[in-house]
Computed example of a mutant assay.
Amino acid sequence: MRILHTSDWHIGRTFHGVDLLADQESVLEEIAGIVSREHVDAVVLAGDVYDRSVPGAEAVRACNRALVALREAGATIIATSGNHDSPARLGAGADFAAAGGLHLFTTVGGVGHPVVLDDEHGPVRFYGVPYLEPDVCRSELGVPAARTHEDVLTAAMERVRADIAAVDPGTRSVVVAHAFVVGGDATDSERSISVGGVETVPAAAFEGVDYAALGHLHSPQEIRSWLRYSGSPLPYSFGERSDAKGVWIVDLGAEGLESVRKVPLTSVRGLSRLTGTLQDLLDGAEHADAEQDYVSALLVDERRPQDPMRRLRERFPHAVHLEWERPGGNPELRYRERVRGRDDTQIVRAFLDDVRGEPTDEEMSLVSEAFAAVTAEKEGER
């Protein structure tokens, strides 16, 4: 059986305020093409289908189009809910959808009750483990003392292993889950799924299955040969600009896992971080390759340029983020050390110079008068 592993679509997400829906539809259409070309039997989607618990109408329509395309390409779809999804909304009509080949695992009650697909070697059991919030699901999982993600996920996987053992310990099996496994590398675009650092779970929690398809971390990575993150199909932060986005193609043979290989996805639009003076960025030939990228720029002009984003977008129309840092400044220096030895008037002068330019003598005279008035008022209260 051939399986395509994907996750973290985050349909409806924006990137520094830019609508990504067209980019998302493009890459999801590409995934449907891979399903057709590779003769994929099942697509597993490991959570965070949407970016919000209440997705917009356009996001819902885009998701529906993507799922229809996957079915038309010939694959059965097994999907779980992630921490961004609303389980109730994503799972609405799940029984009806299953009749059409879309199997949605969004409830604790569905853990341990697999979708069974057959190939020439017999059955393959697909188990879906949605994102599990310890405070919400520990009672239903029968572990009332559970406080961490490891506690509840271990209880969920015990149900999976018990079901496999009850049928046939040699039965081929796949689990689809949304979790943060120890050893995985996070980026800065995943939303934390816990409070207090108790979100991680050990890889050993997933033992007992032939393949574990994970979602939540946005960089594609291998934790074990049988335990992997597909990552998001698009980069959702500049920290992911060097990621090679893709999907995993997983082949199961008669005895279990045979091979896993990565199929790369086309970059819809690149991401670039540029540093220099505004004029350097506007004129420098070395930045030509970034002209159609999403751009994050760090300006190092001596003085803050006027209207820098508008001017930057004349060359980089997809510039989305801008910072200014005075050259020679030390951003690591603590504020207390920077102002040590200065009087109040000097501090105000430096502040005004930083935010809008050198203040005039008349302006500084008004500042001095204001300080003198405050001092006189305090002296009068003694």
Rank of each mutant, 00 (worst) to 15 (best):
G142A: 06
V111Q: 08
H113A: 15
E158Y: 05
A165W: 01
E140P: 00
V136C: 00
V143S: 02
H113G: 03
L153N: 14
L132V: 10
P114M: 09
D119I: 09
V116Q: 06
E120V: 06
D119R: 08
D135M: 07
V116A: 09
I164Q: 08
R159F: 03
A162H: 12
V108A: 14
V115D: 03
V115L: 14
Y131V: 02
G109D: 13
V108T: 15
F105L: 06
D168K: 02
H149W: 09
V124Q: 01
V108M: 05
V108G: 02
P134G: 06
V111K: 07
G112P: 03
A166N: 01
V143T: 11
L132W: 10
P123K: 01
F126S: 04
A155S: 10
V115R: 14
V111H: 03
D151G: 04
A146L: 07
E150K: 03
Y127V: 01
L141A: 00
D118M: 08
G112I: 08
D118N: 13
G142E: 11
V152F: 07
H121G: 06
P123G: 02
R147A: 14
V115Q: 12
H121Q: 08
H149C: 09
D168Y: 04
F126E: 12
T106G: 00
G128F: 09
V115M: 10
F126D: 10
H121C: 11
P123N: 04
A156K: 12
A166F: 00
P130W: 03
A145T: 13
A155Q: 05
H113Q: 15
A162Y: 05
G142Y: 08
S139Q: 13
V129Y: 02
L153A: 08
V136H: 08
Y131R: 02
M157F: 13
A166R: 11
F105M: 07
F105N: 01
D119H: 10
H121N: 15
H121V: 07
V160L: 07
